[in-house]
Amino acid sequence: MIEMKNISKWYGSFQVLNDCTTKVEKGEVVVVCGPSGSGKSTLIKCVNGLEPFQKGEITVNGVSVGDPATDLPKLRSHIGMVFQNFELFPHMTVTENINLAQIKVLGRSPAEATERSLALLNRVGLSEQAPKHPGQLSGGQQQRVAIARALAMDPIAMLFDEPTSALDPEMINEVLDVMVELATEGMTMMVVTHEMGFARKVAHRVIFMDEGRIEEDAAKEEFFGSPRSERSQLFLSKILHH
């Protein structure tokens, strides 16, 4: 479904991505991990064209992301994305946040959109918060709203960019629970995270990145059983020991 071939990207003379190649099949859950600054967030943002790249090709369902002729807004409306800092729109209520793109992009009627929004809020356990503004919610609640907002577009795949790293520890699980549920339902997911518990539980494959390169790209059992590269061993030992 998502295919990346030889992606390279530079900021000026600094290379952030170096010849990255991988793919995500339909229904597959792929976890991307690696030290900070390793390019994992940049890589995931290349998938929906938020970050332009200079070399290589990415296709989503056969549509090329880098092609100037591609209708990017349309492509993006099929891929849900969840951000590290939630990025709910502070001036809109929770419902309005979820309604916005349904109405403006998919052309649903306000009534239709609201019905869908409320159903999704119910699903992530936040029905009561519908009329509130994001600033009145806890971090964990905001991130669940953000997931509902992405799901409202009926995406064919979901991208998660460190969805739990801005959260207080006690709120991480409420967000992970929603993600696990999504994964078990068969959603195609690409998840940048350090939550190895999540990876062990639902991931099919784990990608380890370092200095803009994909150092390791292996099935979950293989990755946790015997990581091949020294770097990923070191990384794993660091994040698994606390």
Binding site: L72, R76, I79, N85, E87, F89, H91
Partner: peptide, 29 residues
Amino acid sequence: PKGQTEAGLAMGLTRVQVYRHVLLPMGYR
């Protein structure tokens, strides 16, 4: 924050729509 624009674009809004619904309402406030 740049993430607000990214969030708008990621859900399929055009740049004009991002200004209209996300950046200007907050910017003016």
